[in-house]
Design a protein around this nucleic acid. Sequence first.
DNA 1: AATTTATTGTAACATTTGTTACATTTGAAA
DNA 2: TTTCAAATGTAACAAATGTTACAATAAATT
Lengths: 228, 228
Amino acid sequence: MKKQGIFNDFHPGEEIDLDFCTIPKWVSCSLYSYRKGDVIARQEDLCKGLYILYKGSVVAEMISESGRVIRIEEIGAIKPLAPAFIFAGENRFPVDVTALAECEIIFIEKNELLKLFREESKALEKYLRYNSDMTRFLSEKLLMLSVKTIRGKLAHYIIGLFNELQRKSPGKAVVTMDKSQTELAKYFGVSRPSLAREMAEMEKDRIIVFHRREVRVISLSKLKEACG
Amino acid sequence: MKKQGIFNDFHPGEEIDLDFCTIPKWVSCSLYSYRKGDVIARQEDLCKGLYILYKGSVVAEMISESGRVIRIEEIGAIKPLAPAFIFAGENRFPVDVTALAECEIIFIEKNELLKLFREESKALEKYLRYNSDMTRFLSEKLLMLSVKTIRGKLAHYIIGLFNELQRKSPGKAVVTMDKSQTELAKYFGVSRPSLAREMAEMEKDRIIVFHRREVRVISLSKLKEACG
DNA sequence: AATTTATTGTAACATTTGTTACATTTGAAA
DNA sequence: TTTCAAATGTAACAAATGTTACAATAAATT
C-alpha cells in the first residue's frame, strides 16, 4: 500500500459524483494505491472513515467462521466500500477487501465527512438516501427469505409484479418476469428443478400459467392464499 | 386524528433524548393524538418526515400481498416509526401502523430534520449510527437465514459464541448459549424437534456436547466444517 | 437453414425438515 | 418436599426440497 499525494491534503481536483454522495473539491482526503492481490482491509479492521474505490476493482469476501468464503461481491470503481459501517456502533469492516487489479482508494475521515454533511445539505441527503435504500433492500430480501416454501416465494414475487402491472395498465393478467427461471431459482436460494416442479404444481392447481418469462394469473385469490 | 398545540409550532418544552437522535427545544414539530384503534399510517403512505411515538403504543403490521398479516411489531413510547424510510428513494411506509392505545405522535418535517442535522452534529451522528446499526443487524440476520441447513446455522451460531468466549477467557471450551433451545429454534426459523434432533446428531458425530444451555466444543475443526 | 448452446421440463430417488405425540427432565411454586 | 408447568429428548411418519440425469425446446451463431 502506498500513500500518494500530500497526506490528508489530496483531493481529486474535481467534484466527485457518487450515487451515494457528492464530494466537493474542498474536502480533504487521502489517496492510497494498491497492487493486485493487496489486502485493502481485513474483516474486523476498524472503519475510521469513508473508503471510496476510485479506480480499479476489488473483491469483498465475507469469510465465515469456518474459514470459507461465504459470499463474494465484486466492486468496480467508483463505489464506496462498506459505507453503512462508518457510523455503526461496532464500526468494523464486515468483510475482507482485496484488490482485484491496480486500484486507487480515496479515504475521507469520519470527521471530515461530518463536516461535509453539515456544509452541504445535498451531500447529506444523498448519503441518507443511500443508507435508507440499503435498509429497504435488505428488509425486502429478508422478507423473501423468511417465506419458507417455494410456492410462497413464487406467489409473493408474482403478486408484487402483478400489482405493479395493475398500476401501469389495469386489467391485464399477463405479467412478464424480470428474471429467467434459472435466475429466479438463485434469487430464491432454491434449486432450479425444485422451482420448475413447483411451477408445474401451481399450473395443475389452476393458479397460474407459466410460459418462459410470461406468467398468466388465473386465480388471484388462490395466488394470495399461496403466500401464507 | 387530532392535531394539538399550534400547527408546526409545537415543541415538547424539553429536549427529547431518543436512542436514535436528540431533539433540542428549538426544533418545530407537530403533535398528533390518536385513540385506540386509529390508523396512524397506511402501508404505502408517503413518509414525509420523522414520526416519533411519544406516548402510548402502536402495532406495525406488515400486510403481505395475500392480505394476511406477516409480521407484527409492537412499539412502545418513545420510539421512531420507520426512521429508515424518511430519506429512501421510495419513501413510503412499509407497514400499517395502528394505535394500540391512546397515543401521541410528534411529527418533524424532513426539512426541519435536515436543519437539525446541520446544526447539531451529535444529532446527526446518532441518527447515522442508528441507521448503520440497523443495516448491520439486518445483514447478520440475512447471513443467518442464507445458511441453509440447521447444522450450518448451529455451527455458525456456536462458533460466534465460541470466538467471543476466547477473547474473554482463552482456552475455555464450554460456551453458554444466550437462548434456550426453544428460543433458538424460533431464532433460526426451524421447528424445535428438528433442532433437537440435529443437536443429537452433532453429538453422535463427536462435534459438540449439549447440556441445556451449555455447549462443550469437542472438535473445533469439525464444527468449522459443518458451517459450509 | 443448420448447428450449437443455453434454457426449460420432467422423473426417480436421496436428504432434510416438519409434524405429532409422548416420555423425561428441570426448575419454580405451593 | 411435593406438585406442577415448562423445557427438553426421542421416535415414527409426512412433506418439502435437493440431486442427478436426461429429454425437449428455444435462442443464438455460423
